[in-house]
Nucleic acid binder design. Sequence first.
DNA 1: CTTTCGACTGTAACCGGTTACACATCGTTT
DNA 2: AAACGATGTGTAACCGGTTACAGTCGAAAG
Lengths: 337, 337
Amino acid sequence: MPTIRDVARLAGVSVATVSRYLNNSGYISQEAAQKIRHAIEALDYEPNVIARGLAKKRTSTIAVLLPDITNPFFAELVKSVEASARDRDYNVVIWSIDEGETAEHSFNAFLRMLQLQYIEGVVISTHTLTTKQVEALKKLAIPFVFLDRPALVTPAPVIRADNRKGARLAVRHLREVGATQIAHIGGPQALLPARERLQGYLEEIKEGGLDMQPMIVEGDFTLEGGMNAIYRILEQAPDTDGIFAANDLMAIGALKALHRAGIAVPEDISIIGFDGISLTAMIEPELSTIAQPIAALGARAVDRLIHLAEHGGMDEHVDTLEVTLIARASTQRGRLH
Amino acid sequence: MPTIRDVARLAGVSVATVSRYLNNSGYISQEAAQKIRHAIEALDYEPNVIARGLAKKRTSTIAVLLPDITNPFFAELVKSVEASARDRDYNVVIWSIDEGETAEHSFNAFLRMLQLQYIEGVVISTHTLTTKQVEALKKLAIPFVFLDRPALVTPAPVIRADNRKGARLAVRHLREVGATQIAHIGGPQALLPARERLQGYLEEIKEGGLDMQPMIVEGDFTLEGGMNAIYRILEQAPDTDGIFAANDLMAIGALKALHRAGIAVPEDISIIGFDGISLTAMIEPELSTIAQPIAALGARAVDRLIHLAEHGGMDEHVDTLEVTLIARASTQRGRLH
DNA sequence: CTTTCGACTGTAACCGGTTACACATCGTTT
DNA sequence: AAACGATGTGTAACCGGTTACAGTCGAAAG
């Protein structure tokens, strides 16, 4: 591996000039630039990122903090973050923060890593952080953005999907396919997206002129949570004919529980989820869902982070991206009753 | 962030001594060790990994090369690799290599990255590499292990599951629940694991004394492939009552196609997959499968890699891990006919 | 004709570690 | 008593970049 000194020697200039050329900082004559270009070409030179990192105290690397990569939503998110980052010549390191006793320890190790690796930005896409932890992160003066999470501390940039509107879309769609008793399987109400989706549900019921009492059971965003929710719904509101689940995983759980209870989807009950993970197309019947623009979320997060890293400052702009309805077999029109 | 010079100053020794203490290389007196320990404690010092990386030309980082993180098998694999690596104070960077035109380019960028980041080892878990590419990787003298892929070049270490035995387990299980006409949805026969699973299928049919002709359709390890396979099976062998798919994704596709064709699982046809991804427990009916020890595969790969990185050498040992049968609803005993 | 300024370049220190080498001390051998 | 090996330590070069600073040169301004 040739070094910058090899290039300088071959080009007949000093290393400073080569470095200036590489970073296009300072003045360079056409002539020198030419010679350096040739030397780089000839040697197939590429700057050593570790050495550069040490000197600059930055490493063109961003970190993604997430709860669980095996959750398809996060897998898809990571995929888009990785692709966008790579396009901009940035690297990505992922850090799973397991919930539970070791979370505290793991988060501290994460902070450590951020500093020691000169990480330039963090995508926070876990909701288990405490305010104290975010404050600690903030002290490091490393830019971060929240992904579909409330900021916890302000000012901080947030990239989010339009949860409220998405929820309204979902409920409206259920109405349109004929449902009149629409229940909601909510997420943990401690989480803002879960609250927003609930809010959208309530709004649409009220403004949509539905003649029904809201029926809400709180789940935990897991498959099991969705299954348990169904048991409660069947018991407490047996006339339910439409279900809006606050995320796809719970919707899939719901589908499963309904299947076991011998209730047909969409013939007896229509059901729609939220997130748009690819799993929704794999199961049978395919699940209708409100798709978050996962790729766009990841790309936007990377954009913002790189902007913050290179231009400094900490904005608190909240970026709200649009969601779209994907109607599939689980909400077939006209099948009801 | 305190540096090693701060520690040396506070402890009243030279930086060399501190460095020797940190790496426990060379001799250190009890007394000096004591003072250094206290100084590190007092300053909350931690060595800067970038600087260390530059000096040592190694960075305690391993890379995972994979086709697609949104494929649950790889997501689970990454999770275990990440956890094992973290335990050993290693970092992980993942690199998705998209198939198609950009793969060549992407792979070259990957090689570049390996060198420039002083990556210490690579877990290869994609099968789209050409022999030439692996040779190029080998030239870098960075250790690598293949995960459930044939070595392509030898000698090279391989960590794999016992595919042949797993396939036999699957077929035997189908027999035990009463299936007599067992079809196989194979993976791409260019891939060794796919061939091994096919081989196990054939063996078990022959030795199990089943009175039937093998029925094999080749899939491509995707969900759609599984669906298409079903259409062909229904057409060509309508009396099939058991299906062994070479991976879970195809089995799930098969389930889906069967559902659409109005064929009940497991009442009319029993079906079993291979891999043991968590998805198999999410769908309805839950899918029986031959579980690879994914966590163990990842952990073993990390072990081997770190060993190779720290002790040098390139072994060609092939590590075969055991698989286990997970019987679920898709192969309920006694439901047949 | 001096001053000034913009364009351009090189020297050398620095980032924060590791390590070759020289050197000192001390208990054992011969 | 000299020689030796094991133990222990510090100095300084090195990894491969970046960048502050000093300095050169030619053209324009005063």
